[in-house]
Write a protein that binds this DNA or RNA. Sequence first.
RNA 1: GCCGGUGUAGCUCAGCUGGUAGAGCAGCUGACUUGUAAUCAGCAGGUCGCCGGUUCGAGUCCGGCCGCCGGCUCCA
Length: 643
Amino acid sequence: MFVFTSPDGRSFEAESVTALEALDRLGQKKGAVAARVDGDLVDLATVLTDSSLVEAVPASSDEGLEILRHSTSHLMAQAVRRLFPGTKVAIGPAIKEGFYYDFDVNGTLTEGDLKRIEDEMRRIVKESHRVERFFLPRDEAIARFRDEGEIYKVELMEEIADDEISLYRQGEYVDLCRGPHVPNTSMLRHFKLLSLAGAYWRGDEKNVMLTRIYGTAFAEKEDLEAYLTRIEEAKRRDHRKLGRELDLFSIQEEGPGFPFFHPRGMALRNKLIEFWRNEHRRAGYEEIMTPLILDRDLWIRSGHWDHYRENMYFTEIDGAPYAIKPMNCPGGILVYKSQIRSYRDLPLRIAELGTVHRHERSGVLHGLMRVRCFTQDDAHLYVTPDQIKREIQGIMDLVDHVYSDVFGFAYHVELSTRPEKAMGEKELWDRAEQSLQEALEEKGVAYRLNPGDGAFYGPKIDFHLEDCIGRTWQCGTIQLDFQMPEKFDMTYVGSDGAQHRPVMLHRTVLGSLERFMGILIEHFAGAFPFWLAPLQVRILPVKGEHQPWARSVETLLREWGLRVEVDGRDEKLGKKIRDAQLQKIPYMLVIGEREVESKRVAVRERSKGDLASLSLEGLQELLLGEYDPLGDAPSLRRSVPHP
RNA sequence: GCCGGUGUAGCUCAGCUGGUAGAGCAGCUGACUUGUAAUCAGCAGGUCGCCGGUUCGAGUCCGGCCGCCGGCUCCA
């Protein structure tokens, strides 16, 4: 006899039961899609052959959803196989917000086919097939799938070491799978196929391209609907859409990947730069600027020619070869080398808002997030080996301050290690990777390992931010580099009077102004905080005759250092308010007869609505009291001139 | 770069099975003189992404190229 116990302490004895029976007898059957037995996820049909702790996995839990989605991907594969005979199936996992399955279809699938596939899926659900696990000896399983032409599954099975292969059957459909799955196709109700995409077999562009179908599934209908609505809502925050609506920037056919910044976008960008300069001055950085175009030999020497050439643009000057810089480091290094450096100068923190050009493949361009010309908020730190960790941690603090304190972004950290085409010796890389890891662990920062994704000259810590639909983008980065100092024979004079080799840190905080602005736009849905808003105040005269006072107030607010304009159009107030709301301008100042007479303004805030009628002193207190990370910037003068 | 989709006025979109383009908003002009999310009327605006082909005739069909969108691969 075995004893089966539930987490809440109930238990019973039995000879042998299935997980489902156990859950039933422990009063936990309802809503379960699988069971957790002594910590392992298993099918409900699994026969329990030892005393164990048995727990239900409800469909709505994270694990339950994953199982539900995984099972739905199988359901989809079954439907595709029915509708498109001869289709070979590849891989179909659950992912963050749904699932996908990759197929090798004869001919092509189009979005119109998704509906048909969904209909077939519903038919299979109605047919109510049991989803059963069974095992075959490895050779037998391989032979069986090979006979059916399932070359992708065969390839996967050949890599499985076990003698027995785990398979699942639902109706006529059999798939290679570890499970667990829901016990019956009838449990799959609330799903939707979302999109169609190409995907390389095993993610390698040298392999054939398969057709991937993305979909999602939820335990409850409302959850699915809420998800679909959320995706729709999120699309309204898309920075490409808002960039056009708020007239921030544009990208033209004449320059794919080369954004044009309009006056409003420039106001935002310049404010961001001002903020950035302020933070870096405080953090002990100096600033330089280096040329966009430099002799090709420099890039051969730096290793870019060997490791980065396909991403570079080249040109010629008086018949001699030059390159447009894809990175700022070589230029920065020349500045370092322009004089003899002493250990007393270190750590040397030299920042540069460096505009770089990189040839990105056409299919990857994406609004401001992925462009071919962008300005990095770069900096290079030249340090002694024993300063490395402290400087790395200093940068991490700066990044966290900017992301968390100032903008309120959630972010995650990755440690990217030695790539395939790395420059330099492995021991140096190991040392560098270890330093970064130590810095992270000492700070207690949670991070993901991203193997093989380092820069060609060094490993890096990456800071990733999310866009409106949850895609993540690398923004900040800290790269530890032992290679360039060698290549360029960089030195400093130590206290011993001898020459020593500095270590170099490459880093960004925002990443690039372009990408960061994209994130900002999506994060705030275009409703920027007051200090960043391209236009902070719009003054709305009720009638034409109120314009003189409106203009006076405008002049005054300019004096205060604010970005302000008057809506002098011959329109009704309601229209002016509507337009200002749509432009997401933080404050509207309504000026009518009452205001002109009393020398006041009626203040409307974009999210709070009509606030109050204020005197100019009261207005100044309100506006200049708004949060501003630039603090007591001298441009904000405090006196109230009387117009 | 690869796979799928897509490309009509500044923006959002109509345009059936081929018969040389239409709406709303925005713009301009005029009237209205306006108080917290759209005043009314008129006018103007398009080589239908580009190139080529089929056809008596192409926005519509075919081919090539370019851009854009979603992925993949690659990256700040």
